[in-house]
Design a protein around this nucleic acid. Structure first.
Lengths: 245, 245
DNA sequence: CGAAGGCTTGATAGACCTCAAACACAGTGG
DNA sequence: CCACTGTGTTTGAGGTCTATCAAGCCTTCG
């Protein structure tokens, strides 16, 4: 592709993301660049789409940090995934009338709302993109499975290390992480809700990880001195993310 | 559709399943009926496709009981889903080169292997089916999310009740369950691996459920005297299965 | 009848939770 | 500029759910 196009792609979160998981043709890239985006800013801790709604748009995260969650009858919350710029957390809504979970922000985030009609039109004109978006939802599913494994069979210690690894790989893939760390605007309470742990226990395990020199976590910034060690501690293998080399 | 076609549909697990989650046109139904199936029988506890392989076919369960699982380095196993006749547990392999989990049988099962090329051809000739199969993978993902919620935030008691409810609804949708129960050819050990519990604990919780009259489970047959009660016990809401009507 | 797999039971231990309070820090308002 | 407030983090104590280990029992099947 041309240099100008390459530069544009770099600054477009969606393109950067899709490039990281699939091969795009120049036409497909162009079509994605030309999507006119209706950008909306959501403040921290607000819902973008809610459980039970019938969405008419898909949301695309442009900046910030977003999560998928569900509140249980007894008030407990389970976070089922974190979403970063370039991700489309409710792509599922495109094929399922009623949403079965809520998408909400963790920090102030800007989000593009893409009408289902626009998306359908895009896929009609570029059938090759179907495979790309479908693949994206399959990778989402693979992440769910990996989280299931964690909650079913891994210790709190492993789970936390694993999550920190996952985020590092995903953020790196879209250029949002340094080689040795990244910004992690997530509270310990939220980590607990994501991992099926109590806030107190998350705190204690984080202290363990710190005291072993595995991580340095302060003020929303995570530093990973020894990536290999953290990966081992979390039994982390990035294969399930299906990111292209 | 014609009466003859209707009758055929009834006896075709794939059609029954897809009918339960989407609207099919007569042409699509016909095309699915005409798929020539290469049927293979797998004995109990054998793997159909393995973690790390590059599958060239998708498998379609015709009879039996199949599960998706992964073995961890320390030997622990996590089962990530149960699959019944009509399900295509590795549809994901169609868009992801390398499998990140294993599909194996729980009991003797017959399975059709459909080459990816055949499937691609089918989707090219009937683009409407893309939405149907895509939707199927999205429902699979919704089940993963629900299991995550269970392992993260529900007690062993709730989890077991929830799973028994899920299977009842899914088996009913394809005509394999009676109004008050179904065949459940799953050992307590396997239940534990699916729910993130030890065999011993599964056994104890099942006894609780039995003593409360919630279930009658003997010799692989489950009887549910009071469906409402079990549903409440498991905090079960079938919405996530996205089954039509 | 013996073997094998699954189920059941008992005893003990540990990972993680809950409750409760103190601490740290940033933002707000007087 | 400094109390004041709110949110997030940290610490302590106790309790519980669930795991582990180990054994006995039951059914099926060759």
């Amino acid at each position: 592709m041309s240099f100008a196009m390459q530069r544009q792609a770099q600054s477009n979160p969606l393109l950067r993301k899709l490039d990281s998981i699939a091969d795009l043709s120049d036409e497909e890239r162009q079509a994605l660049l030309e999507l006119s985006l209706n950008v909306k800013v959501f403040e921290a801790d607000s819902d973008i789409v809610r459980d039970g709604e019938r969405p008419t748009d898909c949301c695309l995260v442009l900046s910030g940090f977003v999560c998928r969650y569900k509140i249980l009858p007894d008030g407990k919350r389970q976070i089922m995934g974190f979403y970063i710029p370039g991700d489309m957390p409710d792509l599922q809504g495109f094929h399922m009338k009623i949403l079965d979970n809520t998408i909400g922000t963790l920090v102030t985030s800007s989000v593009a709302l893409i009408p289902h009609d626009t998306l359908q039109d895009l896929l009609d004109r570029h059938p090759g993109l179907v495979r790309v978006f479908w693949r994206d939802t399959l990778i989402d599913a693979a992440m769910f499975r990996e989280w299931m494994i964690g909650m079913g069979r891994r210790s709190a210690y492993q789970r936390i290390a694993h999550l920190l690894c996952e985020l590092h790989v995903r953020l790196s893939a879209v250029g949002l992480a340094g080689p040795k760390g990244y910004d992690l605007p997530v509270t310990q309470n939220e980590l607990g809700d994501a991992l099926g742990l109590s806030t107190v226990h998350v705190n204690r395990v984080l202290q363990d990880l710190r005291s072993e020199g595995m991580i340095v976590l302060r003020g929303g910034t995570l530093h990973i001195p020894d990536w290999e060690a953290l990966q081992t501690a979390g039994d982390f293998d990035p294969a399930y993310l299906h990111i292209r080399r």
